[in-house]
Every structure is written in structure tokens, then in C-alpha cells.
Design a protein around this nucleic acid. Structure first.
Length: 774
DNA sequence: AACTAGCATTTTTTT
DNA sequence: AATGCTAGTT
């Protein structure tokens, strides 16, 4: 038993309410940094340790493995390892997978089902399209998959799929075919895990009653990220329909941090919850324990633009704090250099690398940053990026294991049958497929049949006949896999992996002596290291557990916090739930944040804003918002507009760190790159449109001009007239009297201009000409 | 069957 | 920019 006073000590009133209100449903609206995880863990501890409910009655659901892990760690300290072991804590997907395996006898797949990831899904859709003779250009696998996923998230089965138009009518056909392929492969995709669980609980009342009896207390983290399927599942478990049920559901969430709309999340589930559980207690957590008031003010004025939300007023006792720095760099290289410079400066002043994080919209942005960190020898850790489990060699090896585990997995088979090259080409494969079809066998069964030689070729249609070379190659493959499958029931996973690598020749093939081969082999070794963790389990179980872990684990989960003193580089999505004293957000430009794909959809745009909000609220003490003048996107470099979100920041919270025009910027390279500036609209502008004398392209100078694209040289007065208040001008100083500037007009053209004055004009112009060639 | 070059396409976020 | 895909070559 826990001492309630000690448990509740240090919690504020609202938190205390959230922890101790254990009879009936509770909705906790928790602003960023308001101690949400603390509330969740203490609530569990309270229910178990103070109320005295057996731990196995509790289920705590999270979205990420990371969150689940963190909760476990914190709970271990509160309630001890014994009680912790009895709790059900995990991600939606993991909990569903476990439930479905247990209840598989009631379902159209068996408990050895595999989980198809995105790549497998694409392959299955392509297969479905091929089966239906559909063109991949008109019905792009990604799009069709998107439609299928949306349907599944809305709990719509293939047979219930309603088509709104012809394209969707076809998509529906693909959906049905795709589902048939999954069934044949004994596979479920991510969405199936949720859909099957939700529908099972909805349709099998006896089963649902069983689970309700088992899990009397439900806790859900990040509730705003639930989709329809997840919501339905929770609704069944919490017995929304049964008036006399205890409804001990505790949902914790924040609609302002809903950033997974694209995968079906619907923050309106918060409203739904209030409707479905009329007596629900709503508790607001508004005190922030993380950030300075300046940061909170900025966050608030950004998020208040979004409509349809419960406005929260975040406040903090941590004081005003530093201003937010907004900086405009020339391009992404300079942006990265700036981040590096500031980090070095802060570290020089006593900060730790580990205090700093760089948060960006897309993983693609990490490269330039990484380069800069490497060059500056700043230790960093990258979260996400090319995910470990997505590397080709890792997927190949996993495919071998998957196939050994479940020979019906034809996606895995397709992946490995000719890797390493075994002279099994398209011809042999189509013949094999034909043989399977004729005999009504799976591909693997057809292979076995072929190896046994029980069906004479003469009896088969021509498409299914094999020449001796193809036959030999296929039979050889069948034999080696047969041998590997024998090992499945005898060897622990790590040894099974060794055996498969050896038998298949994959290890030998991969180690081809090149540097790349070496790197890939290292990844395989890392996978082997993971397999070792399942060594203690009985062979079958170990293999299942390992494959499930591989399917349901993202690299974000491997984020080592506080392990080493390193700067963390991560996407805004990955940053949710984290906090750092110093946060940099680069790429605050239109088409990056908000992302180009969200710009013309108001709902998507609102989500981009929430993403920005999430980024801001990660910062404890210092926030840097960085944008560039020019950015390379999708391979082409274009002028960038500052993100519209920057306009919503309160001026009083900001500190502009771009040099004003006329100041000499430290040019650090031959290219003369330095800072950019914004002409304040308030700057006096003469009636001709020319800036007044205080403005630089100025006084007594004889402007020499040059258009970026080699266009005509406007005459000096004409050019000067092009400068207007509000124009963004970037400039560098190369020496006495010469200012090289870049000027944007109408946001679509960068004009490079040289203003020359004073002595040594000729010499300087030569130098300028040379620079222009670079 | 395996390899190559040239082509096109495509780029968000994650379980 | 980087990747995947197709078609053509060895």
C-alpha cells in the first residue's frame, strides 16, 4: 500500500483531481508541459497502491513505444516491478496484436500471422493491381493504399466499401483483392490490427464482456490522436453503451497537439467522448512546468489562430525568460552554420550539447545540418531518418526469418527467392505462380511439389512448364529453405538467423569486400544483436516475438535520452512529448512549414500550425526560429518566403537577429555569404519609391548592376527605384565601398546588385566578377 | 538471367 | 537529390 499523501505531494490541485477521480470517466485536457505523464503514472499508482485494485485490472494505452517505455520506467519506481509486470501497458498496435493472437481461433487468420509494414503493403497492392489487370499509373499504389487505409481507420471492411466515384469503385475492387492477398499470406497490416480488434469487440458481445471484466480501468495517452477504430475499441472496452457499467476510462489529451490527422487521427474524438460519456469529468491542466512565459505567450498567440478548440491559458512560474530569436539565413548551408555557431556559443557559455535540439519538418532537412555538425565536430544524435528496419539488408534478413516462420508469406518469399541471385528470374517465377494456381497451392507448396517431382510437367499448361535450368534453381532454393525451416523449431532466434544467413548464402553475398557491403553487414550484425534479446525464449516464441518487435518498432523509440552529451536532431513529429532547454527550428518557410502538401487544405494547414505549436512548446528556456532566403527543395533552389506562422508571433517576444541593411556583415567565405535583412516597412521611403538617404544602396554611390539570370542591366536610377520598403535585401561587404546585395522583387526573382563607391573601384569590381563566377 | 543506363517520378509526418 | 522503374545490353 502506498501512502496517499506522499503520492499526491507535489501535485497541483488539477493534477490531484485527475489522479484521484477514479470512479467514472475522466477527460484530462493537458497543455504542453503540464505534467501529463506524471498524472497518468500517479493515477495508475493511486488505483493500484491506494484504492487497492489488482494491477492486472488496468490497461494503459499509448501511441508510441517510447511513451509506453517511459511510463513503465516511471511506474516501476512508484509501484515496484511485481505490480508493473501485471499491468497491461503498450501501444494500441501492440496491445491489439496480442489480443488478436489470443483470440485468433475466432478470426479468419491464425495466431502466427505476420504484420505487413508499409513496404509489404505496397507490394501486396501491386500484386492486387496486377491480378486485376489495372494500370499502376492510373491507380497509383500509394493512393490506393491511402484509400484502403482511410477506410480501415473508419472501420469500413472491403466488402462494405462504398464508392463515391469510378476511381473509388476501382479502389474498392483493389481493396477486396488486397484483403484476399493478406488472408492468403496470413498477414495483417497496421490498420488491420486496430480494425479487427475494434470490430471483434463490437461484434462479439461475450468476448467484449470478458475483456471488460478483465480491464476495469483504462488509461489512454494522447487521446487526440485516436482514429475511429481506436476510439471504437476504447468505447467497447469502457462500455459506453451500458448505463450501469463503471466507465473507468481516463483519457488524456490536447487537441492543440493533434498532429496525426494524415493517418486517420481525429481530435474531434474528444468531443465524441464528451457526448458518449455524458457524466465525464473534464479536468484542465493549465500550469506549465517547462517553459518561460515568453515561450508560452508565443505558443499561445500562434495556436489561438486555430478555430474550434477549447482555449487554454497556459501559465508558468518560471518567469519571463529570454526573447525568441528569429534569424534569416541565406540558404540551408548558412542556416546550418548559424545553428552550429549558436550552439558553440552557448556551449562556450556553459550549456551542454545535450541541452540543445534541432527540430525540423521533414527528415530531408537533416542532411545539411548533419554535414555542418560533422564539420564542426559537434556531437549529435539523429532520431529517425533512414530507419533501421527499412534498410534493405535488414528487410532481406527479416524476410528470410518471416518466411521461415510463416511459409505462406509470399511477400517475404518474393523478396528473398532471388536474393542473393540464384538464377530465378521472371520466367521461373511466373511458371511457379502458374503451377500454384493450377494446383490450388500456395507458392511454397508448389515449390515443395516441384521438389518432390510428383507432378509431371507434361500434364501442365505451357505457362507452368519449366526448363531444366529454372527447375534446378527452384528446387535448390526449396531445399535450402526446407532445411532452414527445420531449424525454426530447434534453434533460438539468433542461431536461426546465423543458420539462415549461412544456408542462403546471403552473408557471403553481402560481404563482397566493398565498403558498402561492410556497412550493410554491420547492420545485419546489429539485427543479430537484437535477436540475441530473444535468445532465452523457446524457439517458436522467440521468433514470433522478434518479428513482432521488428514490425511494431520505430526508430524513434531508440532515442537515448541523457545517455551522452549530444545535440538531438529530430522531426517535429518525433519531438512530441520531449523537452529541451534550447530548441532550434530551422526551415520556417512557406512550403516547408507549412509543408507544400498542406498549403491548400485548411484542415491540413491547421495541423501544420499545431506542429509549429508543438515545436515552440518543446523549448524550456531559449527558442531559435530560423528561415532562409533561398532554399533548395526537391532538387531546385528557389527563393523562400518566411512561414506565415511567423507573423502570428507577438512582436514583444521576439528578437530579430538579422543584420540591418548598411551594416557590414562578416563575410566568411569567398562566396561572401552572410546575413540577410528585412527592410522594415516603417523605414522612410522617398516618393520615388527609392529609399531615403539612410538606406544603403545609397549615397554617392554609382550602382553597377547585374541581373542574376544574366538579364539586362537596368540603369542606375531605374534599379534604385526597384528598392521599396518591405523588399527583402541580402547583402555582403567585400571591402571598401563595395556592397553586394541580393534583392527580391515580387518574391520570385533574385537580383544581384553591386554598389560601388570610393576608391579602388576597378579592382573591387574584378573581384566581384570573379565571385560571381563561383 | 544479370547488369546498366537512362528514364521518370517523387518527395511529410509513423504504428 | 535521390530513388525506383523500364528497357536495352551483355
Amino acid at each position: 500500500m502506498l501512502d496517499p499523501d506522499r503520492l499526491l505531494a507535489g501535485l497541483n490541485e488539477a493534477q490531484r483531481q485527475a489522479v484521484t477521480t477514479v470512479d467514472g470517466p475522466v477527460l484530462v485536457l493537458a497543455g504542453p508541459g503540464s505534467g501529463k505523464t506524471r498524472v497518468l503514472t500517479h493515477r495508475v499508482a493511486y488505483i493500484v497502491g491506494v484504492v487497492g485494485v489488482p494491477a492486472w485490472h488496468l490497461m494503459a494505452v499509448t501511441f508510441t513505444n517510447k511513451a509506453a517505455k517511459e511510463m513503465k520506467e516511471r511506474l516501476g519506481q512508484l509501484i515496484g516491478p511485481a505490480a508493473l509486470d501485471q499491468l497491461t501497458i503498450g501501444t494500441f498496435h501492440a496491445i491489439c496484436a496480442r489480443l488478436l493472437r489470443r483470440e485468433a481461433q475466432a478470426l479468419p487468420f491464425d495466431d502466427r500471422f505476420v504484420i505487413f509494414d508499409t513496404d509489404d503493403q505496397v507490394k501486396a497492392v501491386k500484386q492486387a493491381l496486377a491480378d486485376l489487370n489495372l494500370d499502376e499509373k492510373t491507380y497509383r499504389p500509394q493512393s490506393v493504399l491511402g484509400a484502403i487505409s482511410t477506410a480501415k481507420n473508419e472501420l469500413i471492411r472491403a466488402e462494405d466499401y462504398q464508392a463515391a466515384n469510378y476511381w473509388h469503385e476501382v479502389a474498392g475492387r483493389v481493396y477486396r483483392r488486397y484483403q484476399a492477398i493478406l488472408r492468403a499470406n496470413n498477414a495483417l497490416d497496421f490498420d488491420d490490427l486496430l480494425l479487427e480488434t475494434a470490430l471483434l469487440l463490437k461484434e462479439d458481445e461475450a468476448l467484449a464482456a470478458r475483456y471488460r471484466a478483465r480491464y476495469g480501468f483504462l488509461m489512454v495517452d494522447e487521446f487526440q490522436d485516436t482514429n475511429t477504430a481506436q476510439y471504437a475499441m476504447l468505447r467497447s472496452l469502457a462500455a459506453a453503451e451500458l448505463a450501469d457499467a463503471p466507465h473507468n476510462l481516463c483519457a488524456v489529451g490536447d487537441e492543440d497537439q493533434s498532429i496525426y490527422r494524415w493517418r486517420g487521427a481525429d481530435y474531434r474524438n474528444i468531443m465524441r467522448l464528451r457526448k458518449d460519456f455524458p457524466g465525464i469529468r473534464v479536468i484542465l491542466l493549465e500550469q506549465n512546468y517547462r517553459s518561460s512565459q515568453t515561450i508560452l505567450d508565443a505558443a499561445r498567440s500562434v495556436i489561438d489562430v486555430n478555430a474550434h478548440r477549447t482555449k487554454k491559458s497556459l501559465w508558468s512560474e518560471l518567469g519571463e525568460g529570454d526573447k525568441i530569436t528569429v534569424f534569416e539565413a541565406y540558404d540551408e548551408q548558412e542556416e546550418a552554420a548559424y545553428v552550429v555557431r549558436e550552439i558553440e556559443r552557448r556551449v562556450g557559455a556553459g550549456a551542454r550539447y545535450g541541452d540543445c535540439a534541432v527540430m525540423y519538418r521533414t527528415n530531408a532537412q537533416s542532411r545539411v545540418l548533419e554535414d555542418a555538425f560533422v564539420r564542426a565536430r559537434i556531437p549529435y544524435q539523429l532520431v529517425g531518418g533512414t530507419r533501421f528496419y527499412e534498410r534493405r539488408e535488414v528487410r532481406d534478413v527479416l524476410a528470410y526469418l518471416r518466411f521461415v516462420h510463416n511459409p505462406r508469406d509470399e511477400i517475404a518469399l518474393g523478396r528473398i527467392i532471388n536474393v542473393p541471385p540464384r538464377a530465378i528470374g521472371p520466367k521461373a517465377l511466373s511458371a511457379l505462380a502458374a503451377r500454384a494456381k493450377v494446383a490450388g497451392l500456395s507458392a511454397w507448396e508448389a515449390l515443395c511439389d516441384l521438389a518432390a517431382g510428383s507432378t509431371p510437367d507434361a500434364l501442365l499448361p505451357p505457362a507452368a512448364q519449366l526448363d531444366s535450368r529454372g527447375r534446378t534453381a527452384l528446387v535448390r532454393f526449396q531445399q535450402l529453405m526446407e532445411e532452414a525451416i527445420v531449424g525454426r523449431d530447434l534453434l533460438p532466434v539468433d542461431q536461426l538467423l546465423d543458420q539462415v544467413l549461412d544456408l542462403s548464402g546471403y552473408a557471403r553475398w553481402l560481404k563482397d569486400g566493398t565498403e558498402e557491403g561492410e556497412e550493410r553487414w554491420e547492420n545485419v550484425q546489429e539485427l543479430r544483436g537484437l535477436a540475441l534479446e530473444y535468445h532465452h525464449l523457446p524457439p517458436q516464441e522467440g521468433l514470433t516475438a522478434m518479428l513482432e518487435g521488428a514490425a511494431l518498432t520505430a526508430d524513434t523509440d531508440t532515442l537515448a535520452t541523457g545517455v551522452a552529451d549530444r545535440v538531438t536532431l529530430l522531426t517535429l513529429h518525433a519531438a512530441k512529448g520531449l523537452e529541451y532547454p534550447v530548441v532550434f527550428m530551422p526551415g520556417l518557410e512557406e512550403r516547408v512549414l507549412p509543408h507544400s502538401r498542406s498549403i491548400d487544405d485548411p484542415e491540413a494547414l491547421a495541423e501544420e500550425r499545431r506542429l509549429f505549436y508543438v515545436g515552440i512548446t518543446r523549448a524550456m528556456r531559449k527558442l531559435y526560429l530560423v528561415h532562409t532566403f533561398r532554399r533548395t527543395l526537391y532538387g531546385s533552389s528557389e527563393l523562400a518566403d518566411p512561414s506565415r506562422f511567423l507573423k502570428d508571433l507577438p512582436a514583444a517576444s521576439l528578437e530579430q537577429r538579422s543584420k540591418s541593411l548598411g551594416q557590414v556583415a562578416g563575410s566568411r567565405s569567398a562566396a561572401g555569404r552572410s546575413t540577410t535583412t528585412t527592410w522594415a516597412p516603417s523605414r522612410p521611403v522617398s516618393s520615388t519609391g527609392r529609399p531615403s538617404t539612410s538606406a544603403p544602396p545609397a549615397a554617392g554611390s554609382a550602382p553597377q548592376t547585374r541581373h542574376g539570370a544574366g538579364g539586362p542591366r537596368p540603369a542606375a536610377p531605374a534599379l534604385a527605384a526597384q528598392f521599396r520598403g518591405g523588399d527583402r535585401v541580402r547583402h555582403s561587404h567585400f571591402g571598401a565601398g563595395v556592397v553586394v546585395s541580393s534583392l527580391v522583387k515580387d518574391g520570385d526573382e533574385e537580383v544581384t546588385v553591386a554598389f560601388v563607391g570610393g576608391a579602388g573601384v576597378k579592382k573591387l569590381m574584378q573581384r566581384f566578377a570573379k565571385l560571381e563566377k563561383v
